Amino acid sequence: MTDDSIHSQRTRTLITEDLLLVLFQPDSGTIAGENTLFYVLAAGALTDLAQHGHATIADAGFRGTLIHAAGEPPEDELLRPMWDYISQKPRGVQTVLAASGPTLREPVLDRLVERGHLCRQKRRVLGLFPSTSLVDGGSGRRSELVAEMRAVLVDAAVPSEHIAALTALVSASGSLPVLHREIPWSGTTATRAKNLEQGDWAAGTAATAVTRTMIAVVANSLIAGAVVANR
C-alpha cells in the first residue's frame, strides 16, 4: 500500500467511525449501548462496504438474505477483515455481524483518538488505581454530526447519504433516546428515524440505492440482536 493510499483512507471518514463518535456521551465519558456495540459497529462497517461498492445483498430464497463480497478489497484496514470474511463465501447478515463486530471497538476508538475527536485521559480511581477514561477531543466533529441528525429528525431536513445511514443505525441500535438532550425525543422523531431504518430517504445515485437496501437489512438484524442481548 502506498503512502498516498494510506493518506486517502485516513482522511475519508467512515460511517463506522462516526457511529461510535455519536454514541460517545461527553458528560459521562461512556458509550451508549455497550452491551450490543459490537453488532452496531459491524453494521456500520457492512454499510461502509456497501456504500463503496465492496459488498452486495442477494435474496437466497429459503436461506434468507446473504451478503456477498464485491469489487476489489477495501484499502481501509478497518474494513478489510470483514471483506475477507465474506469473500470466502456468501454469509447471512447475523453471521457477519457476530463474526466481525467483536474486534472493531478498539481500532475504531484508536482512529477517533488519532483524528483528535476523542482523547484518552489517564487518572487514578480513589487516588490509587490507574484508569483511562474517554473525553471529547474538542474537534467539534461530534457536535456537527448530532446537529445534522437533529435537523433531519426534528426539522425534517433532507439528509445526505452519510447522515441518513448514520441516523438509521443509531436508531436501530436503540440508543437514539439516550441523545434526547441533544435530539428531542418524540413520536415524530421516532417515526422519521424508523423511516430511515427502512431505507426511506430521497433516492439519488445507484450507490445510494445499495446503501438504502443494506441499511434496511442491517437495521432489522440490529433490532433482532438487541432483543436477544437484552433478554
Rank of each mutant, 00 (worst) to 15 (best):
A216T: 12
V152F: 02
L41M: 13
H180E: 14
L79P: 04
E75I: 02
T189H: 00
E17G: 02
P73A: 09
F24A: 04
A219G: 07
V227I: 10
D18S: 15
E72D: 11
Q121P: 02
V93S: 03
T95W: 00
A60M: 09
T103K: 13
V158M: 07
V146S: 03
T36E: 06
A190D: 15
A209P: 02
R124C: 03
L126T: 03
E72M: 05
V154F: 02
P130I: 01
L20K: 01
V228N: 00
A207K: 09
A60T: 08
G116V: 01
S139R: 08
L23R: 07
R115I: 03
V227E: 09
G138V: 12
I215P: 06
S28Q: 02
G71T: 00
L126E: 05
G44H: 09
T211H: 07
K194E: 14
L222Y: 07
P74V: 01
L19V: 03
E148A: 13
E197G: 15
S139N: 07
V113G: 01
P81S: 10
V96A: 12
A224G: 02
G225F: 03
A98V: 10
D48W: 02
E106N: 14
A43V: 04
G29I: 01
L66Y: 11
A202Y: 04
D18P: 01
G174Y: 05
R181W: 07
P90I: 06
A58D: 12
G127R: 01
A224W: 00
Q51K: 08
C119I: 14
R150P: 03
G140V: 05
E72W: 00
C119Q: 15
R181F: 11
Q121L: 14
V218T: 06
L46W: 08
A216W: 08
Q9S: 09
R80E: 13
G71K: 00
Y39C: 11
P81G: 09
L169K: 07
G71C: 00
G33S: 08
A164R: 04
S171G: 13
A229Q: 13
A207Q: 09
E17Q: 04
T16L: 08
A58I: 09
G53P: 05
L112D: 02
R105N: 08
T167G: 14
A190P: 04
R12C: 03
L20W: 06
K89Y: 02
L176H: 01
V218G: 05
S186W: 13
L19K: 04
A50F: 06
N220V: 05
Q9G: 04
L179W: 00
S160V: 09
E161D: 15
Q88T: 12
G187L: 15
E77M: 12
R141S: 09
V170F: 01
Q25P: 00
S87M: 05
G116C: 06
C119A: 15
T213G: 11
E114N: 13
D110Q: 11
V40A: 13
